[in-house]
Design a binder for these strands. Sequence first.
DNA 1: CTTTCTGCAAATAGTTTGCAGCCGA
DNA 2: TCGGCTGCAAACTATTTGCAGAAAG
Lengths: 142, 142
Amino acid sequence: MYDANSLKAELNDRGWRLTPQRETILNVFIDLEKGKHLSAEDLDTLLQEQGKPISLSTIYRTVKLMARMGILRELELAEGHKHYELNQPYPHHHHHLICVKCNETIEFKSDAVLKIGSKTAKKLGFHLLDCQLSIHAICPQC
Amino acid sequence: MYDANSLKAELNDRGWRLTPQRETILNVFIDLEKGKHLSAEDLDTLLQEQGKPISLSTIYRTVKLMARMGILRELELAEGHKHYELNQPYPHHHHHLICVKCNETIEFKSDAVLKIGSKTAKKLGFHLLDCQLSIHAICPQC
DNA sequence: CTTTCTGCAAATAGTTTGCAGCCGA
DNA sequence: TCGGCTGCAAACTATTTGCAGAAAG
């Protein structure tokens, strides 16, 4: 799991910098309740409420950067905008089942899927960032 | 696999209509080379080249409709726009490994993942539309 | 004949970008 | 010090929508 120090190390390794904004955003995700995920707008609102406003452009730039580093995972849980959550390693790694009508989202775990994902990436010589099984379905209510 | 008749039946069942545009678009996907997938723009260009132009709004409306019916699957292979391909049943069902830097995309199959997907949906009482494992990674070249 | 569908043009919204000044290493 | 980073405002672009006429059932 990341903290300010490991984030700084990882950023500096790649020629990037640790800024208060980046640290703040990482902390929001670390403190985020399990099973929750935020859109850029959500983050903006949350940071404003916490009295630590960060410009929306920086928010977009930061979540994209962290997703490319493998720190966050980018989720397509609803049409039209992306959500982000910490990219947690085994055994916290999980997947999503989404109702395409009402957007109800259910998390579920599968070691098997994670294994298949890492094996496939390894076999082809790719460096794995994220592996997510998305099940699109219609829930019993819809 | 769908053809004009089964498409018509399925549409009519839900109070929708079979139009020449819908049939044309379905046929493009049926004839599409294995492993290919189209964005809305791609479809627009292709249909124009084939001398069967369809307005971009109708293209968007149609692919979305067919994705919600489970006929097409919506793929997020590159930033900024979606791609579509036929949603084929076992044993043609497959998944994607994507390099987040150069967007190189590799298809792979996994019966195990498909099984996990259908079991999970079934267990929760959801009607399965699509189940896709997306592996985000960095390819050896990048 | 009724209701859905299409095409057009205009609107929308999420996201990106140029730039000037700021600040981490 | 210096090159990356932020905030602002403006730009962009994929996608959606309102509407009038066309057409499927």
